[in-house]
Design a protein around this nucleic acid. Sequence first.
DNA 1: AAGGCGGGGCT
DNA 2: AGCCCAGCCTT
Length: 363
Amino acid sequence: MSEMPTPVLEPTLFQQRLLAWYDRAGRHDLPWQCQRTPYRVWVSEIMLQQTQVTTVIPYFERFMARFPTLGALAEATQDEVLHLWTGLGYYARGRNLHKAARQVVAEHGGELPVASLEAMAELPGIGRSTAGAIIAQSTGQRAVILDGNVKRSLARLHAVEGWPGRPVVERQLWALAEHYTPEQRVADYTQAVMDLGATLCRRGTPECSRCPFADVCVAHFRGEERRFPESKPKKALPTRTTLMLVLRDAEGRVLLEQRPPSGLWGGLWGLPQFDDLAALRGWLDVHAPGAAIDPAWPAFSHTFSHFRLDITPQPARIGRLDAVGEARCWYDPGNPERIGLAAPVKALLASLAPFALAAPAGP
DNA sequence: AAGGCGGGGCT
DNA sequence: AGCCCAGCCTT
């Protein structure tokens, strides 16, 4: 428990405040809140994964009308189940629900094993949080939940740093959720803690003025509600490498090529690009025989939305070269033409003194 | 147009 | 263990 952040309130105080708010302002008439059977709560919890309450309600009603009991669901075909799922998305949820219903009939006598968190979490589509939610809401046994709403509220309340997808962060949040969960009124508590995140402690625009925890919330105290929970780190962009040939003639002009009309830098002018030095040499042998290759300049990188390009400028010299062929031109860095240049090429060319043959400072 | 979301499957 | 995915919705 040493990995738990310092709680902002004693559990009993936390529960009192939350339940008082819930009694006053929470949601009490959701379809799965009447006849809170394990089956109905289960179906609602699966539908509520990744999906908001207002979207779920009509699907839940139709589903219950067609499959009023777990047995009815188990006897249905997968096609019937998926038909009722159409439009809800994440269809694996529907397939797992159906599979789990048959598993419950086969292995648990047709009753959800709500006495055991572990047995519940072994059913397909039910993980730790969903198992806790079903147990707490349908039996009133103490069980802990940690869905996205609860994660957000707890992360703000305690200013928990780090993306909740990281195991260390998730462990802290589970420890807090565990700490605050009561023994009494567990079903209401569970609904309340989810309602708080869904209706008040929203992702974009939290309504702190109505929050029963505004006076103890660390993120609110710092004015940093929006910073918590931290978002998933952007994955490192894949890196590609390329050689760019900086072929200069005796007057210091640089050979450019026009790129294909579509794709990256489509239609722009750029330096001839090669995957490796051998390819560059082969190209010079054909198009600029007699060119002298100089030591490469320091690489620099250019970042696109979807990858990073490491560019190594490869200088070379040739005395004179008249016929450069189609879609090529000699470009005078000291007297630039008005043509479209890819950004890193433009920077590279701008760094070239008209007759400098040594490495430039770089773009 | 981008990012969030709970669990499962794959590496 | 960590990464990636699913599909719709909100921002």
